[in-house]
Amino acid sequence: MTAAPAGTAGTALLDVRHVRKVYEGAGRSVEAVRDLTFGVAAGEFACIVGPSGAGKTTLLKCVAGLLGCTGGEVVLEGARVTGPPPGMAVVFQEYGRSLFPWMTVRQNVELPLKERRVPKARRRELVDEALDAVGLGEARHAHPWQLSGGMQQRVAIARAVAYEPHVLLMDEPFAAVDAQTRADLEDLVRDLWKRLGVTVLFVTHDIDESVYLGQRVIVLSNSPTVVLEEVAVDLPAERDQLATRSDPRFAELRARVYKLVQQAKSGHRPGTGDA
């Protein structure tokens, strides 16, 4: 059994402790997340997978400070998260809806920096670097809707990168782009992570993607959600769409995560079985 070596409490940059989320509706309440505890170490690339409806987006919104937790707490760099914290950037799945359509690509990337009152010259530098890093140097004066889906998501990534976050949250960022673009974007994110030393928490429902990208995969149960198991990904740091995916170890890990997700779908929970 592959136990989780990384992210033990105390040394973690991001600590999720016994987070619980109950949605209060009219006359009835739905428990989406029951008890989630895990940590992400500084500089780590962690992926979260789970069956659809596992409350992945709810969890991510709690971590991002967009939703309040019903119980437990999220601690980022020693401070409890009560609202969107500084030093955190989020890339949403709905790229088309997270960019300001009335601003150019450049203005979109620059806006958060203006809000942080970064001086103009430095702003210019950061924006140019970020756009070049995602390969959109040429498109800076275009409007987002003039770009393809993959390019729009690159803009959102550039905006997050230019913000110089310590933690980057990504909520199924490639779920709505085509397969080819998706592979390119995966490599782009790996590349940015290695170059910038940022901590990444990446939510996905795609098992291959989680194994390919992460150093560790956190598998969630079905709703009400708990952590089913954590799987360390001991693949070499250099990853390649062809070589890595045909690596036997990749296949093993993939199968392991796949089995866990299947178990999660059928309602298996850590307390009830071979945990």
Binding site: S52, G53, K56, T57, Q93, E94, G96, R97, E172, A175, A176, H205
Partner: peptide, 8 residues
């Protein structure tokens, strides 16, 4: 979870 599902 798809974009369509979310917006719906």
């Amino acid at each position: 979870m798809t974009a369509a599902g979310a917006s719906g």
